[in-house]
Write a protein that binds this DNA or RNA. Structure first.
Lengths: 231, 231
DNA sequence: TAGTGGTCTAGACCACCTG
DNA sequence: AGGTGGTCTAGACCACTAG
């Protein structure tokens, strides 16, 4: 059956999705190879490849050489999250952004966080405000061995958050989302009751194998992070 | 300068990343067009396109026709999350999975959740356990207009979570992550104190324009969801 | 080892959008 | 209006791996 291949590889993607959706190709089914599909759709193999590759990225298909392409058996909800800079996030919501530095200290090898490195670290705590209300409490360590120029920064006007992104590149990182009851320190900074449920992001960034910075962002009550599901 | 284009488009991607990293192409910089880069790298334009497209997907580059390709000014942490089926998540951690149905009721137009549809809904509450300990409290509504065969399901052995994924396709959805203090109902179900901070996932799935199901998953204390950052 | 997807090429046309 | 990315083609070679 020919598809209504109106304009491009997206049409092929739609048709493939339709067949999966309609259970013509049920979960676990091995679909025809690219050459046959290309003949079926009346296009070049590269175009089919583009469509199927995209669906594989979305988690709808699994592809292996020689084994072929199959509809995944246990689909997962795959979603792409964008974690913006705090200033942008707040200003994008139409609110005014403000920043207040709470702590700026250089710690020796025995600093407060469970850092995998023993080097000297810069400890910065700050509050990010939206419309003058506490929005996020930032608790950050910066590895001064990896970022020596951080020691010259006061971070009283420009947040470490923004400074690092602008001047310190990183190669990769790890991010974790969790829920935490507010401890005394965080509750005081955010102006909420102790034990309030806070959405927390822990992020560690690396430059090659060296830790650059580690940060915990504790968001005020009611914070939500949303995303779309689907190809 | 020629790059060490050893094996393919990934090499070109690496070289582009290196130039960005080394500030040869600083944030906001417009990089050469695909034709020039192809000449520079000694490959076909399509190969350059593949590399740059991939970097645009990662959020490193911004591409617009005629305007060209530029290094993004304010990089965001873009990450891809996979939300697996609960059973898989638990079994992948080497624990035994169990499931207990807590509530199964058909509600009229006035059901408990703030659903945008006025149709009859099926209300299901269940507990997912890992090694016999409460792991997630599931609170779900199913739109019986969209999924009539759900009314024939008892959900006492197979969770609604798995049944829906296996038999009810959806086209797209929305997912939200937040932190919530445990209310009385949830605290009792999970066996935790009231006000414990819980990681909560709210997910709504659609088939075309029709809501299929809406669910709140409240994870037990200590739950974390992690992901990698980086191209 | 043979079949499949992964990738590359050289060229082409087109949609879009900035200047 | 012209330059840029988006996409398609027809063919080719290669890498991987299941049988």
């Amino acid at each position: 059956m020919k598809a209504a291949h109106s304009i491009g590889w997206q049409s092929i993607q739609s048709e493939v999705l339709r067949r999966i959706h309609a259970r013509e190709w049920p979960p676990g089914h091995v679909i025809p190879n690219e050459i046959d599909l290309a003949k079926d759709f009346g296009c070049a193999r590269a175009t089919v490849n583009r469509a199927l590759q995209s669906l594989a990225d979305s988690g709808v298909l699994e592809r292996r050489r020689k084994a072929g392409t199959r509809v995944v058996l246990h689909p997962v909800s795959r979603t792409t999250l964008d974690i913006p800079i705090l200033r942008q996030e707040i200003e994008a919501a139409g609110k005014t952004y403000d920043y207040r530095l709470l702590l700026h200290a250089t710690d020796g090898p025995n600093h407060g966080m469970d850092l995998p490195f023993r080097d000297t670290a810069l400890h910065v705590q700050a509050l990010h405000l939206a419309d003058m209300k506490a929005y996020v409490f930032e608790d950050r360590w910066i590895n001064l061995s990896a970022v020596p120029k951080a020691s010259e920064q006061s971070f009283d006007a420009l947040s470490a958050n923004e400074w690092l992104i602008q001047y310190v590149p990183f190669t990769h990182g790890e991010i974790a989302f969790s829920a935490q009851n507010a401890d005394a320190e965080t509750a005081k900074a955010l102006g909420v009751d102790i034990d309030t449920a806070l959405f927390v992001i822990d992020r560690t960034t690396f430059d090659q194998d060296q830790i650059v910075t580690q940060v915990r962002l504790s968001y005020g009550p009611g914070y939500k992070i949303t995303a779309q599901i689907g190809p």
